[in-house]
Design a protein around this nucleic acid. Structure first.
Lengths: 195, 195
DNA sequence: CGAGCGCTTGATTGAGTTCAAAAATCGTGG
DNA sequence: CCACGATTTTTGAACTCAATCAAGCGCTCG
């Protein structure tokens, strides 16, 4: 499993096997079952998570008790709570949609590892920038797109998740009801759309 | 004007006047008039901007030609395009809602200055994390909140912008029509709400 | 095998949009 | 400083997309 993370890093930055060992020798791999909770809103996160196999989701509850899925994290995604960095409770929860194998990334693991491999800092900034651009796109979409546009956008971003995520969760990610999503899909099917 | 930026930095990190001079001696201050454009979507951004006085907005256009305001940047806010970091064209435009005095922050100015003051890197990461949390909150809101909830949220985030930003722009930020915002305000006023 | 969950479908409702036009505010030149 | 034209905001009426409520179907897993 750690191999997968090494591969991921190698795509982002040049890193030798020796360097990897040196900086990430003691990574902890964790295997969790479906629906297992990794982080509960209000708690202080101890780790971020790199997904080797499986599927996680990050979601928040609004005052009305409604779930809003902020992000899915399939293979090769990192998900975690940014508030941990400034010692604040998490605003969202994280749990597993499938049985998942993941690597625990302690809150400041990148900063720590960077004492050995300074260019990890650059990578960290790149990752953060990516996250920001991703969210800016999402905001633009939520501001303007109709239900079916949102669904098409979801398909683009997470091409192979359609069958792995239950529809009511996709609906929650899109900010529409499961009923609406069902109708959107029906409409698209009628117009010969192939997912 | 540079004084304001120095003050801003001092609140974020311990920095002496000497250090500031050393790292930021050659900052460029720019004064722009109302409606002047600083960055056009599709261009490659050269700078981010720190607002000393005035008010900027970042907005994108969707395929239907509709404007979506991603962010306002009043005094002491930094706004810029993250795509510049990875040499990609900007997805949004930035212009001035008021006559504005700002400081140009060249794309890698923080990394450059960090050669002199390493703890600037930490600050950079903190800023990025803040941006992410801000956007996560915004996404949660857009997924679930009604028009009037959105407006109340806007008032909380930008308390003193109500009179400085035309209503049609606030509406664009909230993802509703100006007409709807007008009705929301009417309704709130009826219920003795004081802005 | 049946209880429960997820998905679909239908009918109804409602929040917000659209279109139109009046009222208020702003800004600019005389 | 005022007046006029343009822009912004408000108001009204009709409409639309998606939400809600409700019921039925099909699957799975206990």
């Amino acid at each position: 499993m750690v191999e997968i993370f090494k591969q991921y890093l190698k795509e982002k930055i040049e890193i030798t096997d020796e360097e990897f060992e040196q900086a990430f020798g003691n990574l902890v791999v964790k295997k969790i079952i479906k629906w297992q909770v990794l982080l509960r809103a209000g708690e202080h996160a101890q780790h971020g998570f790199f997904v080797c196999r499986g599927l996680l989701r990050a979601y928040s509850l609004d005052e009305k008790g409604k779930e809003h899925i902020v992000q899915f994290a399939p293979e090769n995604w990192i998900v975690g709570d940014r508030n941990a960095m400034i010692n604040q409770p998490s605003i969202f929860s994280i749990d597993a949609i499938e049985e998942t194998e993941l690597i625990l990334l302690p809150n400041n693991f990148l900063e720590a590892a960077a004492t050995q491999i300074p260019r990890l800092l650059t990578m960290n900034v790149t990752l953060l920038n990516n996250a920001i651009r991703f969210m800016q796109k999402r905001i633009s979409m939520l501001l303007g797109a109709t239900a079916s546009e949102r669904y098409l956008d979801f398909l683009k971003i997470y091409p192979n998740l359609t069958l792995r995520v239950p529809q009511w969760m996709i609906a929650s990610y899109l900010g529409i009801t499961p009923e609406s999503l069902s109708r959107v899909r029906k409409e698209l099917a009628k117009n010969h759309f192939r997912p």
